[in-house]
Design a protein around this nucleic acid. Structure first.
Length: 503
RNA sequence: GGCGGCAUAGCUCAGUGGUUAGAGCAAGGGAAUCAUAAUCCCUGGGUCCGAGGUUCAAAUCCUCGUGCCGCCA
C-alpha cells in the first residue's frame, strides 16, 4: 500500500507563519499515520520561488534573488525540521529538474493545441501577477487583493492562453464519477457550481522579467507562476524524465490545500492533467484558515499570536508537540479555526497535562513504586475491555483516514478518559495482593495503544514514552504486538504545567 | 443579484420520521488521595430561529419568512 501527500509549495517572499505550519503539520500527521500502517509514503513540500515578488523581497534585504531564495529555503527547512515535519522531499521550483518539467509540460500543451496565443485586455496587477475581472475592480482601480492594494494597470497585450474552456464537460463528468474528489463535500459543491457556470480560457504567460521560467519556445515570456507551481507535484516525482517514482506514487496523490487555492487544484490542475493525458490526483483536501479576531492569520495579520519562528527555533519540543496537537484538535477540519493563546493554554492544561500526561504518570508511578518497574501478562484481560479499545482504534482510524483530525483526537481523549475511570473504579492504589500486576499490565498495554494514537500528532512525546518503556520504534507501528513483559526504564513528566504562556 | 449551506443547552456541536432531544466544555454539589491538586461521580440547564403544511407521529420532510455563512476567475 502506498500514499502520496503534498502541501502547496509556499511563497518564500516572507517567512513561514503559523498558518503555513498548520497545513504542513496536517500533512505530516497523515504521512506519519500511514507510515505507522506500513504504507509506502511519499510526503512532498517545498517552495514556490518563481514569483516576481521575490525580486522585490530580495531587494528590500539588498540581496540577489537567487541568494534570497536560497536563504529562505534553508529557513523553511529548518523550521519544518524543528516542528518534527518528516517530509520525503523538499522541492524548489528554481531547481533545474523542475524547470525542465515545467517547460516540457508547457510545450506539450502547446504542441497539442491546448495553449494558443491571444490578446488579453483588462486590469492587471504587476505585483500579484494577476489579471482581475472588471467585476472585482472598484473605482479606486487598486488591486482587489487586500494585502496588496497597489494601483492596477489597464493592459492590452499578447499572451499565451490555456484552453480551459475545452475541459468543462470532461471535468463535470469526472466530478460526477468521482464524488470524493474534493473534500469536504461543500467545497466540492462550490467547485462543481463554478465549473457549471462556464470556464474561460486562462492566461498562462507573463512578460519575461529576468526571473521565472521561460516559455520554452518564446523567450519574451515566462510561464505564469501558478502553472509552473502546479507542475511541482509531478516534477518532484521525476515526470517526465525518470518515471519510477511517478509511476509508483502519482495514482495515490492527495493534495492538501487552503480554501483560497481550490480552483487551481480542483479545476485548472485537473484540466492540465487531462490535457497531458495523465491521471488526476485521488483527492484534493481543503482546509480552512486559522483565524484570530475573525480574520485570517497571515504574515501581516495575527502572525504574532503564535510566532512560528520563535516557537520553532526555541527547540521546546513539548511546546511544539502541544501546538501540533492544538492546531488539529480544534474545530472541524475544513472550517476556519479560531486560535488564541488562552485557548491553547486551556487545551494544554486540561487535555495534555491533566488528562493524558497525568494518566501516564499515575500508571507508571504505581508500576515503578509497587511492582519494581515491571509488569507482565498473567491472564486474559479482566479489567479493561479490549472490544472497547478496538472500537476506539477503529474510530480513530476512520477519523484520520477521512482527514477528520479532531474526531481522531477525540478518540485519544475518549481512551484516556476510559483508562482514568478504570483506575478510579478499581481503586488500583488500594490493591495490594498479586492482582495488582495484571491490572497494571492491562493499563500499560492500553497506554502503549494510546501512545500509537498520539504519535502522528506528537511524535516527540510518543518517542519519549517508548524510551521510558525501553521499547523500539517498531512498537509505534499498528501491526506491532505489545510484549507480554514490560519494564519501565525511567519516568518523565510528559506535559509539565505551564504557568505563563510565552510564545 | 445567482447558486449552495447553516440556525438544537451559557459555549462548541451530535442527532435526516418513532420512548421523557444528546455529548464535551462551562456552572453547582459531592467522593477519592495512585498521580503533574492531576481524577471520578452526581445535578441543574433547551418554545430544537419563526409561521404554516404533510403525517398516527416532525429537531428531522415541504412552503414561506427572518438571521448568519460560503462560492460566483
Amino acid at each position: 500500500m502506498k500514499f502520496y501527500i503534498t502541501t502547496p509549495i509556499y511563497y518564500p517572499n516572507s517567512e513561514p507563519h503559523i498558518g503555513t505550519a498548520y497545513t504542513t503539520i496536517a500533512c505530516d500527521v497523515i504521512s506519519r499515520f500511514y507510515k505507522q500502517k506500513n504504507y509506502d509514503v511519499f510526503f512532498l513540500t517545498g517552495t514556490d520561488e518563481n514569483s516576481n515578488k521575490i525580486i522585490e523581497s530580495a531587494s528590500k534585504l539588498d540581496k540577489d534573488p537567487k541568494e534570497y531564495v536560497d536563504d529562505m529555503a534553508v529557513l523553511f527547512k529548518t523550521i519544518w525540521k524543528n516542528l518534527d515535519i518528516e517530509y520525503t522531499k523538499f522541492i524548489r521550483t528554481t531547481e533545474d529538474y523542475h524547470i525542465k518539467t515545467a517547460q516540457f509540460v508547457f510545450k506539450k500543451l502547446y504542441d497539442q493545441g491546448y495553449i494558443y496565443k491571444g490578446l488579453y485586455e483588462g486590469w492587471y496587477c504587476i505585483h500579484c501577477e494577476t489579471f482581475w475581472p472588471s467585476s472585482k475592480v472598484d473605482e479606486s482601480k487598486l488591486c482587489p487583493n487586500i494585502e496588496c492594494r497597489r494601483p492596477l494597470n489597464y493592459i492590452k497585450e499578447e499572451n499565451y492562453f490555456f484552453k480551459l474552456s475545452a475541459f468543462e464537460d470532461k471535468l463535470l463528468k469526472y466530478y460526477q464519477e468521482n464524488p470524493d474528489f474534493v473534500y469536504p463535500d461543500y467545497r466540492f459543491n462550490e467547485v462543481i457550481s463554478f465549473t457549471k457556470s462556464g470556464l474561460q480560457d486562462l492566461s498562462v504567460s507573463r512578460k519575461y522579467n529576468n526571473w521565472g521560467i521561460r516559455v520554452p519556445f518564446d523567450e519574451n515570456f515566462s510561464i505564469y507562476v501558478w502553472i509552473d507551481a502546479l507542475t511541482n507535484y509531478i516534477s518532484a516525482l521525476g515526470y517526465p524524465f525518470e518515471l519510477d517514482l511517478f509511476n509508483k506514487y502519482w495514482e495515490v496523490a492527495h493534495h492538501m490545500v487552503g480554501k483560497d487555492i481550490i480552483r487551481f487544484h480542483a479545476v485548472i490542475w485537473p484540466a492540465i492533467l487531462m490535457a497531458l493525458n495523465l491521471k488526476l490526483p485521488q483527492k484534493i483536501v481543503v482546509h480552512g484558515w486559522l483565524t484570530y479576531d475573525n480574520q485570517k492569520i497571515s504574515k501581516s495579520k495575527g502572525g504574532d499570536i503564535f510566532n512560528l519562528k520563535n516557537i520553532a527555533l526555541s527547540n521546546d519540543k513539548i511546546k511544539i508537540s502541544a501546538i501540533r496537537y492544538y492546531l488539529l484538535r480544534e474545530g472541524s477540519f475544513g472550517q476556519d479555526i479560531p486560535v488564541s493563546l488562552e485557548r491553547f493554554k486551556y487545551i494544554y492544561t486540561s487535555e495534555l497535562s491533566n488528562n493524558i500526561g497525568n494518566l501516564f504518570s499515575r500508571v507508571l508511578a504505581i508500576i515503578d513504586k509497587k511492582l519494581n518497574k515491571q509488569v507482565f501478562k498473567e491472564s486474559d484481560f479482566k479489567y479493561i475491555s479490549l472490544s472497547f479499545i478496538n472500537e476506539v482504534i477503529n474510530n480513530f482510524d476512520k477519523g484520520l483516514s477521512n482527514f477528520n483530525y479532531s474526531k481522531a483526537i477525540l478518540e485519544i481523549l475518549n481512551l484516556a478518559d476510559y483508562l482514568n475511570k478504570v483506575i478510579e473504579e478499581n481503586k488500583v492504589w488500594e490493591i495490594k495482593d498479586n492482582k495488582l500486576n495484571q491490572i497494571m499490565y492491562e493499563l500499560l498495554y492500553s497506554l502503549i495503544v494510546l501512545n500509537k494514537m498520539m504519535y502522528p500528532f506528537m511524535p516527540f512525546i510518543s518517542n519519549s514514552v517508548i524510551e521510558q518503556l525501553n521499547l523500539d520504534q517498531d512498537s509505534l507501528k499498528w501491526d506491532s504486538k505489545v510484549s507480554e513483559i514490560i519494564n519501565i526504564k525511567e519516568r518523565r513528566i510528559l506535559f509539565p504545567k505551564i504557568e505563563n504562556v510565552d510564545i
